[in-house]
Amino acid sequence: MKIIVCVKQVPDTTEIRLDPVNGTLIRDGIPSVMNPDDKAGLEQALRLRESVGGDVTVLSMGPPQAEVMLREALAMGADRAILLSGRAFAGSDTLATSSALAAAIRKLDYDLIITGRQAIDGDTAQVGPQIAEHLDIPNVSYAEQVTPIDGGIIVKRSFEDRYQIQRVMFPCLITALGELAHPRYMTPGAIFDAYRVHTIEQWSDGDIEADAKRLGLGGSPTRVKKSFPKSTKPAGVVTRAEGRQAADIIVAKLKERFLI
């Protein structure tokens, strides 16, 4: 099975701080990590390779610093790492990002593409499905369990209130939930090899066949009007009651807030 895992380097916090003047993310002083959903996807890819054979390539679009995260992926066991980097990609929104990643993937041989469901810094959950659209392959999002079958996989999709079991044939793309697979530890020896033995392949816009107008800021139709941290909600109150008594409590609360 030839697997490509798309990974993103993100700030190591869910408490994003924004620059009050221009509304952009403040990254200074915040350590960067591999996006948790992507890491779960990488772990799943490694397990698939261990059970049915094949190889795992990790692909990331980002600044040169993202190389550290790709070495981490190699230290976890990935076979090959590609960093798509350059000025042409700066300022990309999700569409421009997916256009670039899809163009890079066209240069590669694959059965399965795994992306994280969403990145903890942007939370859009758009890039994975967009890549599948660009490549015109099936996409199965919210994967919580993956089982290999001949020529494809069976995916358990998780929704808030239900599961959906889908069989999908290669080539296809799945977006991984953090619950898909608990990532393994790197080993010290693999970390040494990731620096001493492996190299990170550096690709620029010249290495992929993409319409320049669809890359970077120019290829990004999204316009950020305003960025703000989401307000914190109070913890709420849990009341245990049944039937009529419960209904009365709910109605009283709704009335208290003038909602009914």
Binding site: Y185, T187, P188, G189, A190, I191, F192, D193
Partner: peptide, 18 residues
Amino acid sequence: HAGFLGIPIPKQYGGQGG
């Protein structure tokens, strides 16, 4: 499993080669 018990030992002798 994490490879912490042979960090400075060469790989040829079962270590991590660190």
